[in-house]
């Protein structure tokens, strides 16, 4: 078993009337890229701020590397944070920003400037040291914030939606870079995001948050393919659930079932109904969305309920796609892609 970088036990935080965090237990291993995924307001930031020491928990316990730190101030914890809005010091140059943590820890001037320059080179910002944060673009500021947090080589790096303010292209580029930097420095990353795709592509493990609680912890594949609760099934990927009567008719058993849209094939209604080891359902296409590389079909099932199916546009063009609206279709998918979602009693 790897060493534990962070351990949270029964962590709670109440702000007046709001319970922001309602009991969180979590172990994060050393060197892990760990994501906290959840909708806005689900308590991710509050958990992060409690790990950093900006908020003190209403109840519960926080350990870093086996040491209890629950009551310690932020400057007594070996943890650095990359803030959502970067929180760069506007009155300092980029280099002074990056060197600030070293200066506070009384690293000699020559050494800290050297380290700051290296850290700026790590995030590909050589030659920007003399600028002010206000003279940088969003992506550059983001990288300065990263360099500032990394230069002191903390045991744990906390990142609160660090890519949230960037445009799509830059965002995808930074996702790759962040992951590469993390692999290189081997520091534990705790990465907060509300973007499921981002969490799935970058993380070693993910915790899905909902209303101040963790719904599921697991690898991206586990979270995506075997959601532990209906909430996870709905939040990660497209909500594609069969419940009640329609589940009874289509799957042949009661319960809640999740089928990933890309596993469902869209066929003509007249297509063969019985194929071994496959489920099938007929219905009417209510909406078609052309996505460029793929097309999304929304189908109202005759058995009740609605399923989304995603088809690669191998031969279809955008004109063909529109013609599907209102037509009758048959959906088919392999049994093994029908996943029973455990329902909490």
């Amino acid at each position: 078993m790897e060493a534990t970088a962070i351990r949270l036990q029964g962590l709670r935080k109440v702000f007046g009337e709001t319970t922001a965090v309602a009991g969180v237990d979590l172990d994060i291993a050393d060197g892990e890229f760990f994501s906290m995924l959840g909708p806005s307001g689900s308590g991710k930031t509050t958990v992060l701020r409690m790990i950093a020491g900006f908020e003190s928990p209403t109840a519960g316990r926080i350990e870093l590397a086996g040491q209890e730190v629950t009551g310690l101030a932020p400057f007594e914890r070996d943890v650095h944070t990359v803030f959502q809005d970067y929180a760069l010091f506007p009155h300092m140059t980029v280099e002074q920003n990056v060197a600030y943590g070293l200066k506070v820890r009384k690293v000699p001037k020559a050494k800290r400037l050297q380290q700051a320059r290296e850290a700026l080179a790590d995030v590909r910002l050589e030659g920007f040291g003399a600028r002010r944060p206000s003279q940088l673009s969003g992506g550059q500021r983001q990288r300065v914030a990263l360099a500032r947090a990394l230069v002191g080589r903390p045991r744990v790096l906390l990142l609160d939606e660090p890519l949230g303010a960037l445009d799509l292209k830059l965002r995808e580029q930074m996702q790759v870079e962040l992951k590469a930097i993390q692999r290189e420095v081997g520091i534990t990353f705790v990465f907060v995001t509300h973007d499921q795709e981002e969490a799935l592509t970058m993380s070693d493990r993910i915790a899905v948050f909902n209303q101040g609680r963790i719904e599921q912890v697991g690898t991206p594949a586990e979270i995506y393919e075997r959601p532990a609760t209906p909430f996870v099934a709905g939040f990660v990927g497209t909500s594609n659930l069969l419940e009640g009567d329609s589940a009874q008719q289509v799957v042949g058993a009661s319960g809640t079932y999740s089928i990933r849209p890309e596993k469902i094939r869209v066929l003509k209604e007249s297509a063969e109904a019985d194929e071994p080891e496959h489920s099938t359902a007929t219905g009417t296409v209510v909406e078609v969305v052309y996505l460029g590389d793929a097309t999304r079909f929304l189908v109202d099932l005759d058995a009740g309920g609605r399923l989304t199916a995603l088809q690669q546009n191998l031969e279809t063009s955008s004109e063909d796609v529109a013609a599907y609206r209102g037509t009758r279709v048959r959906l088919r998918w392999h049994h093994r892609h029908t996943f029973k979602v455990p329902t909490p009693r």
Partner: peptide, 25 residues
């Protein structure tokens, strides 16, 4: 408030944050 948090996060105690962040700003 973020800037004060960031300063503490990087290891600065209250006095240091006051001198290096609050006063200059």
């Amino acid at each position: 408030a973020n800037l004060l948090d960031a300063s503490a996060d990087l290891g600065a105690r209250a006095g240091r944050t006051f001198r290096s962040v609050v006063v200059p700003m």
